[in-house]
């Protein structure tokens, strides 16, 4: 249990670059270094983490914590404790760090240096958001015209429909998401 806490504390502390970068760290620690689970089990965890709501880092920490304890011979309640430990440990470092940074930024928000740094950052963040969007335009998410024309064209229609619903009709993203899930169930 202590090893679990320590491992996820380190992952939280050095896990730069979001969920996917974190996954490869978790894999290195949990599968390769500690042998808490097999690669197959880890792959299943990644699949479930991507499919369920919530940040991927939190989802995988919760699931890995559970599986590691149960694989080690623990009862399900030990697994729950393992989930709690891993999730708490992975958020603790960024929690402390973000509190310090928040405090600092609120104090020096109007300092000219801080203002200029953010003036440079804002256009770049727009680029980051665009990159996140481009990186998600994969055959995995849209299929391809040759592989499955039906799924591909419906996916493109969903993509365009979502943009129109949000931009023109100002619909709430949660409602659009639920509608698309329903479309998926009905059409695929």
């Amino acid at each position: 249990m202590f090893a679990l806490f320590f491992t996820f504390f380190l992952i939280g502390l050095f896990g730069f670059g979001g969920g996917y970068a974190m996954l490869s760290m978790i894999q290195g620690e949990v599968v390769t270094a500690h042998h808490w689970m097999t690669m197959g089990e880890f792959t299943d965890i990644v699949a479930v983490s991507q499919m369920t709501p919530g940040p991927i880092g939190i989802n995988s920490a919760t699931y890995v914590g559970y599986t590691a304890m149960v694989n080690g011979g623990g009862a399900p309640w030990m697994g729950v404790l393992g989930s709690l430990t891993a999730t708490f440990a992975v958020t603790l470092p960024s929690f402390i760090l973000m509190l310090l940074i928040s405090k600092f930024l609120m104090q020096y928000k109007h300092h000219p240096i801080v203002e200029h740094v953010f003036l440079g950052l804002r256009p770049a963040v727009v680029g980051l958001l665009a990159a996140a969007c481009l990186l998600l335009m994969t055959p995995d998410n849209f299929s391809t015209p040759t592989e499955s024309p039906w799924q591909f064209y419906i996916s493109v229609a969903i993509f365009i429909g979502t943009i129109i619903a949000c931009r023109v009709y100002k619909m709430n993203p949660i409602h659009v998401l639920l509608a698309c899930a329903l479309i998926g169930i009905l059409l695929f």
Binding site: C133, L136, M137, D140, N141, F142, I154, S155, V156, I158, F159, I160, G161, T162, I163, C166, V176, L177, C180, A181, L182, I183, G184, I185, L187, F188
Partner: peptide, 8 residues
């Protein structure tokens, strides 16, 4: 259905 929606 959800994946292309999330990208948009």
């Amino acid at each position: 259905g959800i994946r292309p929606c999330v990208v948009a």
